[in-house]
Design a protein around this nucleic acid. Sequence first.
DNA 1: CACGCTCAAGGACGTTTGTAATTGAAGTGG
DNA 2: CCACTTCAATTACAAACGTCCTTGAGCGTG
Lengths: 130, 130
Amino acid sequence: MPPRKGLSRGEMEVARIVWDLRQASVRQVLEALPSDRDIDFTTVQTYLRRLEEKGYLNVRLDGRTRIYSPRVRPQTVIRESVEDFVDLLFAGDAMPLVKHLVEEQKFSPEDIQHLRQLLDRLEGECDNDT
Amino acid sequence: MPPRKGLSRGEMEVARIVWDLRQASVRQVLEALPSDRDIDFTTVQTYLRRLEEKGYLNVRLDGRTRIYSPRVRPQTVIRESVEDFVDLLFAGDAMPLVKHLVEEQKFSPEDIQHLRQLLDRLEGECDNDT
DNA sequence: CACGCTCAAGGACGTTTGTAATTGAAGTGG
DNA sequence: CCACTTCAATTACAAACGTCCTTGAGCGTG
């Protein structure tokens, strides 16, 4: 049912960089990767090519250089990935994941406050829904 | 740095069942799979074998049947998987994921209340920490 | 212009994953 | 006890992944 094939780990890694840069050549992506990420130019090339094949990126030519740009919004990819992940690990029920995150990750008091506000807002919307 | 190899999608699927059943033969896992999950007996067999090879499951013989049981606690695997996922999609920052989940998933008012209590509890612990 | 040098494109290769066909042992009815 | 069925173990294999090697085009310099 998902319209696109899923992204592998490496593909996601470079896709995130293209999202950040809004558009990028192979070399630009390579340079944007964390310096401790020791990876070959051609490996990045392959990821970009596959991302384009899978429909996640657009490509245009600038001289003899391919410039890649997003074709699917990150929001969409993130939504699909999260859904997938929740299905896989928690049988589709997101609550345990939220609880896990809130319990395990040490959020700052500011974050917690932020979350509380988010919950308030949500509850308000619920009222309006019904 | 992770002591174990990661689990693939299919492996996770059957691992979750073994966790539920606490111990299971190939056939028991097969039967515990959702009925719409059309998968061969031998495929399940392969997943279980690989899980054992990777150190996630123990195995003992009951007659000529292999009985698999957890070797690593689900809690541990879940923690590792979530961490992995957050790294991959959100550069290690869990907040965006929590926000995404709270915003996208339609939680019931009860769930929201529940979460609020969880936040309260956490804040209390923070105070004690410092 | 010829010789390297840089860099992009495409092909290549070993491993992992998803899935099943094949082989082989145990039980069962005539 | 032999043909048949049943079910588990092993082997197999194509697709996806992570990674890089190879080839070839453009460019600078003696």
